[in-house]
Simulated assay, not measured.
Amino acid sequence: MQRERERERERERESMATYMFMQFMYPSAPVSVTTAMSLITVASLVNGGVSEIRGKNFQYSKFWNMGHKKSTPKLSGQMGMLLVYTPAFLYGLASFGLYPYGGFSFMLLKSALTIHFFKRISEVLFIHKYSGPMFLDIAMVLSVNYFIITANFIHAQYLTLGLQEPSLDLKHVGIVVFLMGQIGNFYHHYLLSKLRNQGDKEYKIPKGGLFNLVICPHYLFEILGFVGVTCIAQTWYALSFALGTAGLLVGRSYATRKWYLSKFEDFPSDVKALILFVF
């Protein structure tokens, strides 16, 4: 009898938790592939963050051991990053023709993803300065990943058409949060670009904006941007990607702060990695 009551209470708690989530999210579409991709996305991104903390850095970052021998062809840093972002941007543009219907939320999601990658391409062309080349195989892997992620975002939203909408409409909140994330990320990328003159490969401690409080405010705003996308989409895939991105950038910001501490004796100890005054 006692066990039955405990099971009943457990079912009630699960029902309440499900009900609360349904206030914010579309119900899961009955497609196992989409569910699997959501789990794979969050797991792989968080694993990337854990790897960064352990010192196994992504091969296109400045923390990777550039002395590593590879026979793969190289591209300039700028051409490599253009290859990374352009297919996802083109798919975002094409999605307006591939999925011409779907209502305001769908249009907002397609627009947000297209704007996001347009901003990244613009930064590659006009803002970022690159200190070294990029291996072609790494650029291609990243390019395919971003393309698949963008396609998954849009397809997951397509699968919500005809489903019961969440009780809480977060679209307008999402627009504001997304734009804040994009603007803040762009601004801090601009500040980073001003640290070095053309051809200068020396690293310096960033200043200005939120750099006086955290070493990676551009990552903080990138997370904020994808929180905005999640509020626009209100799908499980969008939530999984936002959580995974946060996990990845937590690890990368930790590695970044550790790197600056090792390279600069005058690095301010009160400057955190990602979250103001906390981490």
Rank of each mutant, 00 (worst) to 15 (best):
I127Q: 00
I127L: 08
H128R: 06
H128P: 06
H128K: 14
H128L: 04
H128M: 03
K129F: 00
K129H: 01
K129W: 01
K129S: 01
Y130Q: 04
Y130E: 02
Y130G: 01
Y130D: 01
Y130A: 06
S131P: 12
S131M: 06
S131I: 09
G132N: 05
G132T: 09
G132K: 08
G132D: 09
P133A: 13
P133Q: 08
M134E: 10
M134P: 05
M134S: 11
F135C: 11
F135G: 11
F135Y: 14
F135W: 09
L136Q: 05
L136F: 08
L136K: 02
I138L: 08
I138G: 06
A139N: 02
M140A: 12
M140E: 07
M140F: 11
M140P: 07
M140N: 00
M140H: 00
V141L: 15
V141K: 14
V141W: 08
L142R: 08
L142V: 02
L142F: 02
S143H: 00
S143K: 00
V144Q: 07
N145E: 11
N145L: 15
Y146Q: 10
F147W: 14
F147C: 11
F147D: 11
I149W: 03
I149S: 12
I149M: 04
I149E: 09
T150C: 14
A151F: 07
A151D: 05
A151K: 06
N152T: 13
N152M: 15
F153W: 13
I154E: 05
I154F: 08
H155L: 15
H155T: 11
Q157N: 02
Q157W: 05
Q157R: 01
Y158I: 02
Y158P: 00
Y158N: 06
L159D: 04
L159Y: 03
L159W: 01
T160L: 05
